[in-house]
Design a protein around this nucleic acid. Structure first.
Length: 881
RNA sequence: CAACAUGUAGCUCAACGGUAGAGCAUCUGAGUUAGGAUCAGACUGUCGCGGGUUCAAAUCCCGCCAUGUGGACCA
């Protein structure tokens, strides 16, 4: 395992600057970035040696908004640490970068500024690439691509056609979420509290013909495979499981008894709790249920009630607070188990047509919603669960439904059974019973997860490669006619989709019959673009969507890092895509991301002037004195209110521009600060004081290296030498254990301790030069993944003629991790009273004798015998009196 | 409303059964024309509260309180 690149430098490594000089971050960072580039140090080799293990680290690729923000800095710094660490550990590392470049903002900018989405996007990419490069990330830039590159979306069109052929993509007429502001369809996942995720506009329901991906076929698979993702945060797995929303139950058919106004003879309800059937007090229908709609045709009151329900039904927020309302239809159904019992049928506003059958049986005693409804309309509340200790006494139910465990009571054949047993028994009995010749119930599993609607009525997206022919219908475009390229000559003077009104683009011959036909003008949801980009990085110039050989070598991504906001959408779609791409032969990996890390946000104090306007941190100065923290405007010296700590955002103006920080302090300081201050999965509070502290450390470390490198031979005391060597290797062992788990802030704390010790040793002069060099060298190597430029400069100053970025990780000398003689605390009755130094391997008996001989122990005993002496070898001794 | 996470120095966080520590801030001193940088040093803790287990609890268990996050008519 040698260095990865030839190490030849154009400057002298032996130069030893004066200790009074300051480290010039800007000049050094530019210099080292150029040297890394010239050495092609971070280019991943397509054919690494066979014995070299691969490691794929990926951060969620950015949307090219135009500016890099602190969240990006944190995200990419975190990934870069692991990439550089794994490289030093001898892995062949893939660490690429790309751009999630399609989407609405480009079109909005086009409309506003009369620019073209393409020009706007590529300009932004160029600006952000420069910014990211100034961070000194160890990225293989030769693999860079944008999802709006024709080369990329051409491959995506091939994937679409393969999905279409495999039945994974289909077209259906569906009620869709329509965003009236963006004038496009949204996926369910993109509707938050009834509003568009981007526009915040109230979403309407419209009936349109749309393209869908059959993600619902994989509901079980996607749910059950979550268990195997042991390197994913539990929280994300829970969120995905909830989103898939599997519930097992039964469809139960209830025969109608009183049926005035409907032609139906039965109503089918879905329930996960058929065990509570004996407690059923009513039946509820959704407003859109066919029976409700049929009744409404002849009953104006029902018509009015349904309209009322639908008004509320547009926004989730409204549903949450809405009062339970119902309408007694006068219909009744027969209870399946209790001879002669009839249940009244209500239309109720809390029942959703989209889930189950749109009808329920209400068991008021064991469902809170049903209970509220029953109390309001004076319906039956019968508890059918009892404490196993007194199985004849049902749990009393007043205003809170009983949702816990229990045994069945008042439930005929189910009496005495526990929940699961009773559910099985109820389903079995109903399955045997006949209604009109077929079983009264079938077991069924329901899911919340719906098929993924991918059609978007937008220009700036991947065109869906199909043609509409009046004779042949919907025809896939021929492979040889791909890619279907977006036209450049488009206008944004009107809302809606520019592709629809393009004069010629739509007109094509039908791929099947050759007659005049027209192209599909919908483009794909941008989440499609991001669902497979990680696979493309394995071979970004392949003539097919993936090069299976490369994909199989690199995937799954070993460590994926990004924000928790993608816990459901992007990650679930990508998991689906991996499966769909496996079916269609594009790769063999089912789970795309082996390890997932969700990083916290970068947050900052907010500042508000007396007139209520928000101020930027750069516009004021903060005093931190005895009167607490106070902030003043730089221009007027007026005091402003220091507000809450919030996510950096344009609206609150509490942003800090990474460019400014890198210009002032350098990329290393910015990286060190975001990595050191809080655990990576939690929010980090950006403070000026913290940045300055980080920068002081940069200067201090550089000065320390300078001093050590420039000092002459020192002969140290054997004890001090050993102590520093021990600390060095113990720190190395600890840091080595922390980096793979992304516990960077803990690693930083360890490094601080070591630097303090080296500093002290250098000043005292009781440690030999060679030991100091070893300590500071290992220290620099541990710092290198986090502050790579500073580390290179220090590494060179220490006389190394290789780059630290190309050097193997230092080896831990394990014999230094164990002490021969150790100082242990001595407790008396569990409280520390003193210390004792013993040989590492002294026996319990010897330790006990030595402790009892100590003066402070004798004093505490005052002549008595100790009740007990606990000796934990190597840890502690406790004398119990 | 149930779930999960988090409560340790003024602030941000370590330690995860066995000696409570770092950085920042604050204070004192050195130095400097001054400020900054630097150096030397100092202060700060019922480890959220209450109980339990243990020779020993910040750490494990139970209960409560506070804060945060994302869910919430999914039958």
């Amino acid at each position: 395992m040698g260095s990865l690149a030839p190490a030849r430098f154009l400057f002298s490594t032996k130069k030893t600057p004066m200790a009074s000089e300051r480290y010039n971050a800007k000049a050094n960072e530019e210099k080292w970035q150029r040297i890394w580039d010239d050495a092609k140090l971070f280019e991943t080799r397509t054919n690494p040696e066979v014995d070299r293990e691969t490691y794929y680290v990926l951060e969620m690729f950015p949307y090219p908004s135009g500016r890099v923000h602190m969240g990006h800095v944190r995200n990419y710094a975190m990934g870069d640490v692991i990439a550089r660490y794994k490289r030093a550990k001898g892995f062949e590392v893939l660490h690429p970068m790309g751009w999630d470049a399609f989407g609405m903002p480009a079109e909005n900018a086009a409309m506003k500024n009369k620019t073209h989405p393409k020009g706007w996007t590529y300009d932004n990419i160029a600006a952000m690439r420069t910014q990211l490069k100034s961070m000194g990330l160890s990225i293989d830039w030769t693999r860079e691509f944008a999802t709006c590159d024709v080369d990329y979306y051409a491959q995506q069109q091939k994937l679409f056609l393969d999905f279409l052929e495999a039945g994974l993509a289909y077209r259906k007429n569906a009620k869709v979420n329509w965003d009236p502001v963006d004038m496009t369809v949204l996926a369910n996942e993109q509707v938050i509290d009834g509003r568009g995720w981007r526009s915040d506009a109230l979403v309407e329901q419209r009936e349109l013909t749309q393209w869908f991906f059959k993600i619902s076929d994989y509901s079980d698979e996607l749910l059950e495979s979550l268990e195997n993702l042991d390197q994913w945060p539990a929280k994300v797995k829970t969120m995905q499981a909830n989103w898939i929303g599997r519930s097992r139950g039964a469809r139960i058919r209830f025969p109608l008894v009183k049926s005035a106004g409907t032609t139906a003879t039965e109503i089918e309800a879905f329930s996960t709790r058929p065990d509570t059937l004996y407690g059923a007090g009513f039946m509820g229908l959704a407003a859109e249920h066919p029976v409700s709609l049929e009744l409404a045709r002849t009953n104006p009151d029902i018509q009015a009630f349904i309209e009322d329900c639908q008004k509320i039904g547009t926004s989730v927020a409204a549903i949450e607070t809405a009062e339970k309302k119902g309408f007694d239809t006068g219909l009744t159904v027969a209870h399946p188990f209790i001879e002669g019992k009839e249940l009244p049928v209500y239309i109720a506003n809390f029942i959703l047509m989209g889930y189950g059958t749109g009808a329920i049986f209400g068991c008021a005693a064991h469902d809170q919603r049903d209970l509220e409804f029953a109390r309001k309309y004076g319906l039956e509340v019968t508890s059918v669960l009892a404490d196993p200790g007194s199985p004849d006494q049902p749990f009393p139910v007043q205003n809170e439904a009983y949702l816990g465990e229990g045994v069945m009571v008042g439930s005929g054949f189910m009496n005495g059974m526990a929940k699961e047993e009773a559910i099985e028994a109820a389903i079995a009995k109903l399955a045997d019973a006949r209604l009109g010749g077929s079983p009264m119930a079938v077991a069924e599993t329901n899911y919340k997860l719906r098929d993924w609607g991918v059609s978007r009525q937008r220009y700036w997206g991947c065109p869906i490669p199909v043609v509409h022919c009046s004779a042949c219908g919907v025809v896939p475009e021929k492979q040889e006619n791909l890619p279907v390229v977006l036209p450049d000559d488009i206008t944004f003077d009107k809302p809606g989709n520019p592709l629809d009104r393009h004069p010629t683009w739509r007109s094509v011959p039908c791929p099947s019959c050759g007659k005049a036909a027209s192209r599909e003008t919908d483009t794909m949801d941008t989440f499609v673009d991001s669902s497979w980009y990680f696979a493309r990085f394995a071979d970004p110039t392949a003539a097919t969507p993936t090069n299976p050989k490369a994909t199989n070598r690199w995937l799954p991504v070993d460590q994926y890092i990004g924000g928790i906001e993608h816990a459901i959408l992007h990650l679930l779609y990508s998991r689906f895509f991996a499966r769909a791409m496996s079916i269609t032969g594009h790769m063999d990996v089912q789970e795309p991301f082996k390890g997932l890390f969700t990083q916290g946000m970068v947050v900052h104090e907010t500042y508000r002037a007396a007139d209520g306007s928000w101020l930027q941190p750069a516009e004021l100065r903060v005093e931190d004195g005895q009167n607490g923290r106070r902030a003043f405007r730089l221009d007027s010296d007026e005091e402003v209110e220091i507000g809450g700590i919030e996510k950096m955002s344009k609206s609150k103006r509490n942003t800090v521009d990474p460019d400014d920080i890198i210009e002032t302090y350098g990329a290393d300081t910015a990286r060190w600060f975001v990595l050191s201050d809080s655990p990576p999965d939690r929010d980090v509070i950006w403070t000026e004081a913290g940045v300055e502290g980080a920068h002081r450390f940069v200067q201090r470390l550089w000065r320390l290296v300078n001093n050590i490198a420039g000092s002459g031979e020192v002969v140290g005391a054997p004890d001090s030498d050993l102590a520093l060597r021990r600390l060095t290797h113990r720190t190395l062992a600890n840091v080595d254990g922390m980096i793979p788990g992304l516990r960077y802030n803990s690693a930083v704390a360890q490094i601080y301790t070591l630097v303090n010790a080296i500093d002290q040793a250098a000043k005292k002069g009781d440690v030999s030069h060679a030991v100091l060099i070893e300590a500071i060298s290992i220290c620099i190597q541990m710092v290198a993944p986090m502050m790579p430029h500073l580390a290179e400069e220090c590494w060179a100053m220490l006389g190394n003629d290789s780059m630290v970025s190309a050097s193997p990780w230092p080896r831990i000398q394990t014999d230094l991790l164990v002490d021969l003689e150790i100082t242990m605390p001595v407790q008396i009755n569990g409280k520390k009273k003193g210390e004792i130094t013993l040989a590492k391997d002294s026996s319990k008996e010897a330790a006990e004798a030595a402790v009892l001989a100590e003066a402070f122990v004798q004093a505490a005993l005052s002549g008595k015998e100790p009740k007990k002496v606990i000796v934990v070898p190597g840890r502690i001794i406790n004398v119990v009196i």
